[in-house]
């Protein structure tokens, strides 16, 4: 085997192993806790204030308020046990609405508000036509709060 080929082999094996290692030990480990829940946020110690985290919960019905002619809005996020206020600035995603799941990225601060610039919609695993939903149809799906795995 030529030396050039050998080097190429070693480099590419290292790249693949490095990639897998990075995913498994770097991201997977960290992201086994992909998000925290409002209950955990409420229990944050002061040194966790201002640190970037993701929080998932249900957007509480009738809690969404927009500031007219701005891109600022506030709403409450709940995991069934606790509720936290979120202050968001930006255009919320298309699927973001009250009574639906959302993952917000941002930080919890001493003003006991979660500040965010990024909302991701967390949709459930049921799929049905609009007419069926309007007619009150329901499919067997996991309870949303259970998908948050609140301890």
């Amino acid at each position: 085997m030529k030396t050039g080929k050998k080097t190429a082999i070693i480099i590419s094996i290292l790249i693949v192993l490095g990639g897998i290692g990075y995913l498994v030990f770097g991201n997977f480990g960290k992201n086994l806790i992909y998000f925290v829940t409002p209950s955990e946020v409420v229990a944050f110690a002061p040194e966790q204030y201002g640190k970037k985290v993701r929080v998932a919960g249900l957007v509480v019905k009738e809690s969404l308020k927009v500031v007219p002619n701005t891109l600022r809005l506030t709403f409450d996020l709940t995991d069934g046990a606790e509720k936290i206020p979120v202050a968001f600035e930006g255009v919320p995603p298309d699927l973001f609405k009250e009574g639906q799941g959302a993952v917000v990225e941002g930080f919890w601060d001493a003003d006991r508000t979660f500040h965010s610039h990024m909302i991701m919609a967390k949709h459930s695993e049921d799929y049905m036509p609009i007419e069926m939903k309007k007619a009150g149809g329901a499919l067997p799906k996991k309870d949303f709060f259970k998908t948050l795995k609140v301890e």
Partner: peptide, 20 residues
């Protein structure tokens, strides 16, 4: 685990996809 990805649609819970 806690994921953004939705849970399984076809599982022991049943089928959560409308026939259509």
């Amino acid at each position: 685990w806690r994921t953004l990805h939705q849970p399984l649609s076809i599982s022991t819970r049943g089928v959560a996809i409308a026939r259509d």
